[in-house]
């Protein structure tokens, strides 16, 4: 029974949603389920957040390596929870939006999370450089093709690309880097995108069927 109920739920709900697309009165089912999902996700956070606390408190109590930083994480987490739940330092009081302009909660976001997030994001500039270098030592034909296409597009987006090939006569303008870049974006790029998308579509169809029929059930913890 323990084994069967989850599979029955998946089958029933999955089939219901597939069918609902073709039945207009069931159109709103999707939105209802999205709402359910949002609510479940908050409940689940008690497990996730609880786990976060447990991991760091264990680290702290056992004085594991780097336990000092666990204090920072736990304190940061707790402080934000208190400020956010009680809406401390919110000019509009308890009824205002938690992210109201000028609230302590939003100030924390602006002065801590924004710089941290955008710097982490900015590290990509370095990683893009190192990945480009790696691609540069192209190991095989596929990597070389990737690199050439990337190079043309990159140059095509800079004035340098124009300068480099402006000598090419107008009748062969397709060979000028900026137009070549546009051409790559519109033709082979489009073709590749389509093939990938069609493949993904079919892959999702096939996987969904396996899940709905209960053939794929690893995620449920029911390995045969």
């Amino acid at each position: 029974m323990r084994r069967q109920i989850p599979l029955i739920i998946t089958f029933f709900i999955g089939t219901l949603l597939v069918v609902s697309v073709f039945i207009p009165p069931m159109e709103s089912l999707k939105e209802t389920f999205t709402l359910y999902f949002d609510i479940i996700a908050v409940f689940a956070f008690f497990l996730g957040g609880g786990n976060l606390l447990r991991v760091h408190l264990t680290k702290l109590s056992r004085r594991k390596q780097d336990w000092v930083y666990s204090i920072v994480t736990v304190v940061g987490f707790a402080v934000v929870l208190v400020i956010g739940l009680l809406k401390l330092g919110n000019p509009g009081g308890i009824t205002a939006s938690p992210t109201a302009e000028g609230s302590l909660f939003q100030t924390l976001f602006n002065s801590i999370l924004v710089p941290l997030g955008s710097t982490m994001y900015a590290l990509l500039a370095f990683f893009v450089a190192s990945a480009s270098y790696r691609a540069f030592r192209a190991k095989n034909r596929e990597a070389t093709i990737l690199l050439i296409a990337a190079f043309v597009i990159l140059l095509g987006r800079t004035p340098f690309g124009m300068m480099l090939t402006s000598w090419i006569p107008e009748s062969f303008s397709i060979l000028q880097i900026p137009s070549l870049a546009v051409w790559i974006m519109n033709s082979p790029n489009l073709a590749g995108q389509r093939a990938i998308m069609i493949g993904i579509g079919l892959g999702v169809v096939s996987m969904s069927i396996r899940i709905i029929l209960g053939i794929e059930r690893t995620y449920l913890g029911e390995e045969k």
């Binding site: 908050v42 957040g49 920072v72 934000v80």
Partner: peptide, 18 residues
Amino acid sequence: EAIFVGVSAGYWFITLFW
């Protein structure tokens, strides 16, 4: 990193909660 993890986990929970 420790500040980022702690503060952002709390921030997300509060936003989702409200």
